[in-house]
């Protein structure tokens, strides 16, 4: 199966492809100096000379990451109005707010590469840039908020912690802060599920159902198997990616299985078992068919997520226009008074 159309759907990871022609049109740069920076594990900073393909690849990856944070506000935002206690409501509002903050942070990191946030947002709205497919799944019950925190944020952290050492300085530094908050979110998700799994029969069933639905999509967040991941080698050479998709997926499984035992919840994979020889958990074959359908736009919530995002943007157009007009007026008044 070809994954070449498997373009940019994850966050904190990158499986997309840049058009080869763009690489060919890249302006001349000092390849040796860039290679030397990478070899020394030095950070590339915005003012540094860099290959055009490196710049474009980073823009796409950071933008997709930012878009994922923003679209990710929706499935959890879906439960703000119904959170079952005021404490949970406050935690959830703060969490969704954090995601908006991560988006802002990441758009700012992308802007250091010479793009404009408004253009990136337009590309999201027009479908030219993607966001993580995991957010096209619905949050059907309160337990889904816990499952997203525990599994989805857990997978995101596994992807993102290595990015704290990524070769591009602004992205790496953004990731340090994002990872701290994500780690907090992951523990909150775990705690939600722990409370449910130790609660009433109905609550425990709700928690198990959420884990059953979110387990496989979470494993798919790491992208296609290494054999089918066309861009990984290049991203590794550039110091953007530090570990392969399968290595990160294994790390996530190894971390998560003992946690599921602590929760008293099962993971929906009959092949999941400890392998003494490998020193890792074995897990069953991932059926990527569903994921590909979701990426193609046929997931449970693709249309809703984009309609919500575009709808909010369009509904706010008059506000942004007014703010611009007001700023212009006041700039003129200030000039006139000077």
């Amino acid at each position: 199966m070809s994954y070449h159309w498997y373009r940019g759907h994850v966050y904190g990871n990158d499986f997309g492809t840049d058009a080869p022609a763009q690489d060919g049109q890249a302006p001349a740069h000092d390849e040796q100096a860039f290679a030397a920076l990478l070899a020394d594990e030095d950070r590339i900073e915005p003012r540094d000379d860099m290959p055009e393909a490196y710049r474009k690849s980073l823009i796409r990856q950071i933008a997709q990451h930012a878009h994922s944070e923003i679209i990710g506000m929706q499935p959890e935002g879906n439960w703000i109005s119904r959170a079952p206690s005021l404490r949970r409501k406050a935690i959830l509002m703060a969490k969704v707010q954090d995601e908006a903050g991560h988006g802002l942070y990441l758009y700012a990191a992308a802007e250091t590469l010479g793009v404009d946030r408004a253009d990136l947002v337009d590309q999201l709205h027009s479908g030219r840039q993607k966001y993580s497919s995991i957010f096209n799944y619905p949050t059907l019950t309160w337990a889904d908020v816990g499952a997203i925190g525990w599994l989805v944020d857990g997978a995101a952290i596994t992807n993102q912690v290595p990015l704290c050492r990524c070769s591009y300085g602004p992205y790496a530094r953004a990731m340090v802060r994002v990872c701290k908050e994500e780690s907090f979110h992951q523990r909150q998700g775990f705690e939600i599920l722990h409370t449910l799994s130790h609660g009433t029969t109905g609550q425990k069933a709700m928690a198990q159902d959420a884990v059953n639905r979110y387990w496989w999509p979470s494993l798919m967040m790491f992208g296609p198997p290494d054999d089918d991941s066309p861009n990984s080698a290049r991203s590794m050479a550039w110091g953007i990616k530090r570990f392969s998709n399968d290595e990160l997926r294994q790390r996530f499984v190894d971390m998560t299985v003992p946690q599921s035992e602590a929760l008293g919840l099962t993971l929906p994979d009959p092949d999941l078992r400890w392998n003494d020889e490998r020193g890792h958990y074995d897990y069953g074959d991932i059926d990527f068919t569903e994921l590909f359908e979701v990426i193609k736009g046929n997931g449970p919530c693709n249309a809703e997520r984009m309609a919500h995002k575009r709808g909010a943007h369009e509904a706010g157009a008059w506000v942004r226009e007014a703010a611009d007009a007001y700023a212009d007026k006041h700039a003129r008044r200030t000039e006139g008074a000077a």
């Binding site: 923003i70 506000m73 929706q74 935002g77 703000i80 509002m93 969704v96 707010q97 908006a100 903050g101 988006g103 802002l104 758009y107 919500h308 909010a312 509904a315 706010g316 157009a317 506000v319 942004r320």
Partner: peptide, 11 residues
């Protein structure tokens, strides 16, 4: 939250 005219306003 997720419906504001700008991301800063969501925050």
């Amino acid at each position: 939250i997720s419906r504001a005219p700008e991301l800063e306003e969501d925050v």
